[in-house]
Design a protein around this nucleic acid. Structure first.
Lengths: 257, 257
DNA sequence: CGTGAAGTTGATATCCTTCAATCACCGTGG
DNA sequence: CCACGGTGATTGAAGGATATCAACTTCACG
């Protein structure tokens, strides 16, 4: 997708969706300057929350710089839904749902989040084409991901959902780190369930069924391998989403540095 | 503003979400100039389709100028999911999911759609702050709607989904046309089912249950009233979304006229 | 080890789907 | 004008899938 300056694109057919920087782990995140007044680093323990309180004009946002978090909602009666998983490099902007719905960012594991507050520069940025294009790209990408998840939640059964989820993690980790032999599954059954619109027991049952089928082999409770990725792909009626690493963050960083 | 857990949350003023123009029915749509070379009006009969063809750079889009359409996807095995309903005034941009997934706009009733092709002006518009801000606003709004639908599909049961759907239509029609006594339900059971992640028989069953409960009264198969909107609101654990009329179209029109 | 939290498994209930039959509506053609 | 046929809607019966509740196991960590 993003060429190295001058170099020819090498066999672009299967496109991992990652810029070369992301693939090499030297993307925008590593050059984030920590000492500027508009940014603040927040460490979240597993389960820690960051709540949205408006105003919702997208002049504040958060980049997950370490770990994995989740955009969560709950209803009054306690039902919880994970609207999206925010991996390292993902950019979360303030307005994620109606202001009245309870909505927050929750660390699924040890996390570091960089909070940007651009309200002081808002008037300038609102007319800055580069900044606008960057935020557009980010929101646009989030929209396509969300829409695919609508189809997933509306029409896939539990086994398809879990398989798709596991395959997505594999895809993600092989794109970022092709050498790593196993994929980590750091989320709890409860979290997976809330992400997939199921409950924890169902996730557990489906997981054992998948283990027995041989499509996925678990080394322990949090690491697995997928011996035949193609077989999994055939079992799932949708495309397995490509990760986008820290590209979003990079785009944004370049826009308003 | 985001705060660490525990901070107080701002209570938003009740806002119908409509610009004055939309509320008075004299919004951008009525001044759409029909004879410019970059736009083309398309009439769709019920069930008619408009398929998205690349490239997916959002330099092509469609405004629903009459009627109601749906952003649809299907899987290889025929399962269909309506990703979103596009009411009059909604702006649909080309890339709505991964290019490989089958995805199209389908008329739920007699429709008129205005297709804009800005590819010839793309290079200029890519740096035009006003245009960028407008497309950002549109995509951003679509994202919030999509994320609420994720919660709906993941966590609401069939009755809650149908009630929410009916309430949303009522809300929409009272905001646009407070004098109209009844709300029209022009979608077929099949369409409603594909929108709510159910099947047609379930929708039918739930509707008769809702009728019996008295929450909704049907005058005939396609018109209903909701005698006690508050009672419905109490039955549904989420906010009932506000319509946004032709505001999106207006924003866009002003940006690149 | 001991303890608590997370995960697994089983029994059962509930919800939703599937399949099939019937009904209601609507336009068409005799 | 009315019989006819087609399509969508409704309803019923049965089955399947997922949720719920409860018991038990495993694991992490002191």
């Amino acid at each position: 997708m993003y060429d190295v300056a001058g170099a020819k694109k090498a066999v672009p057919a299967p496109d991992s969706g990652l810029c070369d920087g992301c693939r090499q782990g030297v993307c925008a995140l590593s050059h984030l300057q920590k000492d500027l007044p508009d940014r603040r680093f927040i460490n979240l323990a597993k389960g820690g929350r960051l709540e949205a309180t408006g105003p919702y004009d997208c002049m504040q946002f958060w980049i997950v710089t370490k770990g994995t978090a989740a955009s969560c909602t709950t209803f009054a009666d306690g039902r919880r839904q994970i609207v999206g998983i925010e991996y390292t490099g993902d950019v979360v902007c303030g307005l994620m749902s109606a202001p009245s719905t309870q909505h927050w960012l929750e660390a699924l594991e040890e996390c570091e989040v960089c909070q940007f507050d651009l309200t002081r520069r808002a008037n300038a940025l609102r007319h800055d084409p580069e900044f606008l294009a960057a935020t557009f790209a980010i929101v646009h990408r989030r929209l396509t991901v969300s829409q695919d998840r609508i189809s997933m939640l509306g029409r896939l059964d539990s086994q398809e959902r879990v398989l798709l989820f596991l395959a997505e993690l594999v895809q993600r980790h092989t794109a970022l780190d092709p050498m790593a032999p196993v994929t980590a599954l750091s989320m709890s059954r409860e979290d997976i369930a809330d992400y997939l619109g199921l409950n924890a027991e169902t996730v557990s049952r489906v997981l054992t069924r998948i283990k027995k089928s041989g499509l996925v082999k678990f080394l322990n409770r949090t690491e697995y391998v997928m011996p035949d990725f193609e077989a999994v792909r055939r079992r799932v009626p949708v495309e397995i989403p490509m990760p986008h690493g820290a590209c979003n963050a990079r785009i944004l960083m370049e826009a308003f540095k």
